[in-house]
Design a protein around this nucleic acid. Sequence first.
RNA 1: GCUCCCUUCGUCUAGUGGUUAGGACGCUGGCCUCUCACGCCGGUAACAGGGGUUCGAGUCCCCUAGGGAGUACCA
Length: 470
Amino acid sequence: MTVRTRFAPSPTGFLHVGGARTALFSWLYARKHGGKFVLRIEDTDLERSTMESVNAILEGMTWLGLEYDEGPFYQTKRFDRYDEVIQDLLERGLAYRCNCSHERLDKLRDEAMKRKEKPRYDGHCRGIEVNPNEPHVIRFRNPETGVVAVDDLIRGRVTFNNEELDDLIIRRTDGSPTYNLTVVVDDLDMKITHVIRGDDHLNNTPRQINILQALDASPPIYGHVPMILGDDGARLSKRHGAVSVMQYREAGFLPEALLNYLVRLGWSHGDQEVFSVDEMIELFDIDAVNKAASSFNTDKLLWLNQHYIKQDDAKRIAHLLSPHMGNLGIDPSQGPDLVAVAEAHQERARSLVEMAEMSAFCYQDYEAFEEKAAKKHLRPAAREPLERMRETLDSLGEWTEETLHAAVEQVSADLDVKMGKVAQPLRVAVVGRAASPGIDVTLYLVGKEASLRRIDKALDYIRQREANVG
RNA sequence: GCUCCCUUCGUCUAGUGGUUAGGACGCUGGCCUCUCACGCCGGUAACAGGGGUUCGAGUCCCCUAGGGAGUACCA
């Protein structure tokens, strides 16, 4: 038996992290077992499904690298097949027509609640012949007794009493099939062996198993993965700040960082924190997935992101960084080589957005000195070092990291001060703030012309300060 | 309300009857150092509560509390 898993989102919004992790687990399971991963779009809710959502989901999966082997299959294209199954169920007496009004149903529910019971359909139409030409729904005839056991890969054995279940609607008045019917038919037709999905579906499972049994089919193996909660521990949902995985790309995250973060949320392999995709496939074990929901922690994601930025090839980072520079209104082709700029900042940035911001000085003059930095480093005592540096740099033959490093060392030695006394004022002069890569690289990237111009600006600032005091 | 699920540091987790309850993020002290960052060394902090079972319980059972899901002609 070859393993076949699936991801079956409903296209009513973007792909958020919860869905992405479910997809990841399902994908990993298929990859690990040399199986197939199927993508199915559950768009039977015609009101809420949109093509934009389909595209957003596809885009998210592509970005993360969760490629599917089959699909996407659209349920709206399979209505004939569902009708066929419903018809069969009807003929075999396993489903029946029902024309109970909404009013009656509402009343039933209210009364049950009043009696402190679980609201369920009372089977009113079970024995009644409803005219097929009148508006009606079709309900599945659920067994009235016995138990349904789900041997879940993650939860273990979970049992439900059939008495708790009721005759669910499998076809609406408008003739469209409902979720619990379509999943069952699709998983069956698509020969899905392992259903790995969010645990919000755990309660649906016994109903689906009952339908499967009515169809003389044996159920797949289920694995219900826990939910993901937000940073604040509150539910991460569309309504409460759930964000699209694509927003993580915009925020400057690498897909491998998000994937790594997601795989460690609810799953672990000893003390290992960093997993390449290949390692995930090799080591992933659905039995080791946690039962409890976990909270999303952006700080840890940032840490992983920094790890991957640091480790990655500077060329690739530069390539990914480029659009973020663009967002800042910078054209990286007008200035130093972006690869060199990226390399200089790889160990400093937690995200590509941060990297873009901290390396903007390589391409454009800062607007103003950071106040604290200027106050501390651009004081009268810094005037002489800066003047000397300006002189030295102006007459520097070759503008390389080596010559620049030597220049700063030379000035420090001449003045008989520690390197910091020269490098820090110089850094603030050239960058506008007190933090940047090594002073030699910084100067190299900024270039001679801009460096001298900015040093002059800093000297002006110092002179003005001296004048104010004097 | 009812049914089902869940519960180890702030967060992600290790742990499968005997551990000084381990790791990671964060926070924090230090080292390195031209700054920031990286790196390295150290610190902080947890078994939800109560009953059992057992020589022994974070680990097994029960109860309580708290959280979550479902309870739709949504998926």
